[in-house]
Design a binder for these strands. Sequence first.
DNA 1: TTGCATTATTGCGTGCAACGCAAAAAATCA
DNA 2: TGATTTTTTGCGTTGCACGCAATAATGCAA
Lengths: 214, 214
Amino acid sequence: MNNSSGLGLRERKRARTSEVIHVAAAELALERGLDAATIEAISDRAGVSTRTFFNYFPTKEDAVLGIDEVAVSAELDKVRGCDGDLFLALFDLITALFEATGGGIKSDLKRDVIRKYPHLMTRQMVRVAELEDRLSAIVAGWLAKDARFAEQTEAEHLEAARIILGVSLATVRITMKKWASDPDPATGPPASAAPRETYERAIATLGTVMEKLR
Amino acid sequence: MNNSSGLGLRERKRARTSEVIHVAAAELALERGLDAATIEAISDRAGVSTRTFFNYFPTKEDAVLGIDEVAVSAELDKVRGCDGDLFLALFDLITALFEATGGGIKSDLKRDVIRKYPHLMTRQMVRVAELEDRLSAIVAGWLAKDARFAEQTEAEHLEAARIILGVSLATVRITMKKWASDPDPATGPPASAAPRETYERAIATLGTVMEKLR
DNA sequence: TTGCATTATTGCGTGCAACGCAAAAAATCA
DNA sequence: TGATTTTTTGCGTTGCACGCAATAATGCAA
């Protein structure tokens, strides 16, 4: 480790290659369509062999979305508290997982490609849902430190955490789908603010619905 | 239409073939594993060509689960009211979609195969989620006839319906996952009662959580 | 019952995804 | 520099998904 970033050359190069492949995949999907963006074409543009492609991404869709398993896992390992609203904290965590990879142009690309192929959002959600165990453990940790859940057992915390997580994921999915189907916001305001508010209102709606339906 | 079932011979034969393929797929998956249950092997056992396989199911997993698009659509077209608890009515609707196809041995097969390969449950949920628009329209209809939502606009009904649907799907998924990971219930009591109660308790938990977290 | 129209089945061929394996290339370290 | 470890790559294999056109089965009408 003789450099400034704390990462060896190998790791940096690996991250860079991952990004190159992702960008190639996403751009190709935007330019010529998802079907035409074949793995061979993506690999060509990225300047790697098709075999190397699979050393970085298990599926084409993962490459288009730029899902970097290592980065996602690292993001999960960050210790997070929950100071304010639990649902909002969870929203931030989930969206952080979406964008885990370091960023750069990627966010915009990802947004465009999901806009064009909304089913990728579902894919993305499924991927996050696969982290269910780790995520619900985090939420359970939050509950354990929350005075309002002090009287509950650890098992009950986990139970509640799973439900909260599932509900949040569903709500994020709805939120993002709406966001993706919206007409372009004219590149005006910070595009990332809107979904968070939409999500917040959706949770509020859920609150009143639960109240009325019991 | 000169028979008792109201279906022509063609339709009956089609339904039968669909079932034969599904059973072959599920049994093979149970006997030799999901990977070994190749489309060629399934088709062989079902006595059809591999090409015919794709005339009935778009993917191998759909065949294993026995997802009959026609039957699902028919199930959706049944008019359903919501007399009692809305969440429970939604649970019944969703699980009815799961089992849509007419049944027979299928339910047991399906249960076993999902037990063995839980990720198929996620697949199943994704399939149902693809019906989001039609399902949320149904729920919105229920809300429209509900006195407690009388003051809301149609758009608000649809908005709330989407959220309710998403939450229910998530909860069903959690419920079914738990059910699938449970040890065999010794073939004792009606196995279908348990998930419904588990779901009911989960919704109740969500209610108290929402109360505490606002 | 027979002939016609419709629909289903099948074989063939294509393209692509995914991955195992071992050789070659590159990066790290001593 | 030379040895070690990791990465990249080429090659080959298997299986999924489907288009197309020929063939077979079925339903319908005369």
